[in-house]
Design a protein around this nucleic acid. Structure first.
Lengths: 196, 196
DNA sequence: CTGATTGTTGACCGATCGGTCCACCATACG
DNA sequence: CGTATGGTGGACCGATCGGTCAACAATCAG
């Protein structure tokens, strides 16, 4: 019954997510969203609701995807310590530094909207807590594997690693060259992940 | 000759700076600026130029003031190591955590505008470099005072400390409670500032 | 006191914003 | 095939945006 949709929902969300990622929430107009999605305004509203709901949907897609990658990376690493190093180094993983300059959509959104948008704040907290828990679990594993001392608190270490990673994201956004950024990432990883 | 100004320029800039700080650039309208400054639109334009130039002026006021405080704090500390600890702990210096939630105007602006506004990007880089140089100098001093090992690179350590501080700023913006944030700040300071 | 000059104010401007609506279209079912 | 149903797209809406401007106010030189 009735006309079927002429677009792939996930594909549209990804395009919209990239637009918000590149330009931010306020600086993205509905016209931008229409352009990158290929849909008309009416279709966009019919399928996803208003700009704010669409943004939250795109943000959720981002955090889910990123969380999935992190979970997989941590789980698949032969040694947890290597995964923790990779976690800190993630912002400089892109050779050209383009990813570093683009930053993290969740962080960008937190800075732009956390004080005025409760939904974004809640998503930020949710993501922060989930990430901390995942990283803390890997810290425990690294301790069990004899790669980290047992006298460090896993959760506290996880928070420090997350702060370090986000600090790198910030420095990347200032346009700091990728080599310097990589060196800083290495320093942070070395200091925050002491030998057992 | 001619009518004198009925406002204090510095005072207006501070009010405008606070408005941008609380709401961000795009989310601050000219009407907001008129309200917090007490001036009419025409006066605002006559004295400071358009919204963008006014913002840059307010941002510069912020970085100059912050830079001044930092310089003074680093210079006046009896031991440089204490000043470096205080630098990392700065984002949690406010007891209630209100300052932590407000964040840093330079960081907020970098996240919102660095990709689209060359002037803001340049200001971010300028501030980052100045801060790194100041902190590195204190690291050298701490080494001379026997509080930090001589085998660490001052500039590299300064960058790591700056990243840690900005990571804390980010976590503060997610609304993380001030006690947890303080504990994380202590962990970061302890790990990044090893005993000599 | 007068004229020149600058500051102040708010009405007003075109542009753009997010959002709505409806005529039209494509499909599935009776 | 005809009709009901939901999808599509763009014209259109009021609100708000940043910015301009002209009438008026306050000052000082002469």
């Amino acid at each position: 019954m009735a006309r079927p949709r002429q677009f792939d929902e996930e594909q549209v969300i990804r395009a919209v997510r990239d637009q918000f990622w590149d330009a931010g929430y306020a600086a993205t107009s509905l016209e931008d969203l229409v352009r990158v999605s290929g849909l008309g305004k009416g279709s966009l509203y019919g399928a996803f609701g208003d700009k704010h709901r669409l943004f939250l949907r795109a943000l959720r897609e981002y955090t889910d995807t990123s969380g999935g990658y992190l979970r997989e990376m941590l789980a698949s690493a032969p040694r947890a310590l290597d995964a923790l190093r990779a976690f800190v180094m993630a912002p400089v993983n892109d050779p050209g530094g383009a990813a570093a300059r683009r930053g993290c959509l969740m962080a960008n959104s937190t800075y732009e909207l956390a004080t005025s948008d409760p939904d974004v704040l809640a998503e930020a907290r949710r993501t922060y807590e989930a990430t901390t828990a995942l990283v803390a679990e890997s810290v425990r594993r690294a301790q069990g594997e004899g790669d980290l001392p047992h006298d460090v608190d896993p959760v506290e270490t996880a928070r420090a690693l997350l702060a370090a990673q986000q600090g790198l994201v910030f420095m990347g956004r200032t346009g700091l060259d990728i080599d310097t950024l990589t060196a800083t990432a290495r320093t942070l990883a070395a200091r925050l992940l002491p030998d057992a």
